[in-house]
């Protein structure tokens, strides 16, 4: 990957406002459709911006702990680019989502372009390119769970989410927990089976910083499925 050549790096708007208007519309029209990390299908490029080349570390403030973690990941692999996913995961932990700034920080440390990272962040389901919430509740609604009424659980969870909850409640494809169906993956903890009526409790727990449905999570002390042991 290359840095931009000499003297490049000004935006069209800076140098030729009228032309910018002609090509991408006036600043007002632009503001109406401000692109996100993955500017949508309908979004023009933002001519206000300079091209997103590899940011120089001297221009980017990276939290030291994050920088250290990324560098540790880079050291683990024969090719540093393999560190991209773990590094994005780390950046998401720090920033709450893969924000443009988060990507810039990873890019500066890894010496890759931000686009290289948004290309990845938008491909993988667990990386969020929008601020959807620091906690997550993934309700599995794939075939096996679907057969055990997962849809109802999903609706219940969505309904239980309240204004201001910092939680990403979403349906998710098979989580590899069909034996626990219907189930949810709450911040990495697999909980199931869950009755839709328990949904409010799960979100309340997240809200109040408690462990949702203690003892009901895979890996919890003495966890068992209701029908295990009986025969």
């Amino acid at each position: 990957m290359t840095d931009s050549p000499r003297g490049n790096g000004r935006s069209l708007r800076e140098s030729d406002p009228l032309l910018a208007d002609r090509i991408v519309g006036t600043p007002e029209q632009q503001a109406a459709a401000r692109p996100a990390v993955a500017a949508g299908w309908d979004e023009p490029a933002d001519i206000e911006k300079a091209p997103a080349t590899i940011p120089d570390l001297s221009e980017v403030e990276v939290p030291p702990a994050l920088k250290a973690e990324i560098e540790a990941h880079m050291a683990k692999y024969p090719n540093v680019r393999s560190a991209a996913l773990p590094s994005l995961e780390a950046a998401q932990r720090v920033h709450g989502w893969c924000s443009p700034e988060a990507l810039r920080q990873v890019a500066a440390v890894m010496r890759v372009t931000p686009a290289y990272l948004s290309m990845l962040a938008t491909f993988y389901d667990m990386l969020n390119t929008e601020p959807v919430g620091r906690h997550y509740v993934y309700v599995c609604t794939s075939v096996s769970c679907h057969l055990r009424n997962a849809q109802a659980l999903a609706e219940a969870m969505k309904a239980a989410k309240q204004e201001g909850d910092d939680v990403n409640v979403r349906e998710f494809e098979c989580l590899g927990a069909c034996d626990m169906a219907p189930m949810a993956n709450v911040d990495g903890r697999f909980i199931g089976p869950i009755d839709p009526s328990e949904a409010p409790e799960v979100l309340a727990a997240l809200r109040e910083g408690r462990t949702p449905l203690p003892g009901r999570g895979l890996g919890d002390e003495g966890f068992r499925l209701p029908w295990e042991g009986e025969s």
């Binding site: 075939v143 096996s144 057969l147 055990r148 069909c178 034996d179 169906a181 499925l225 295990e228």
Partner: peptide
């Protein structure tokens, strides 16, 4: 792994 409409998935 047995799942879906059975009484003892697992």
């Amino acid at each position: 792994s047995v799942s879906g409409n059975v009484q003892r998935p697992g």
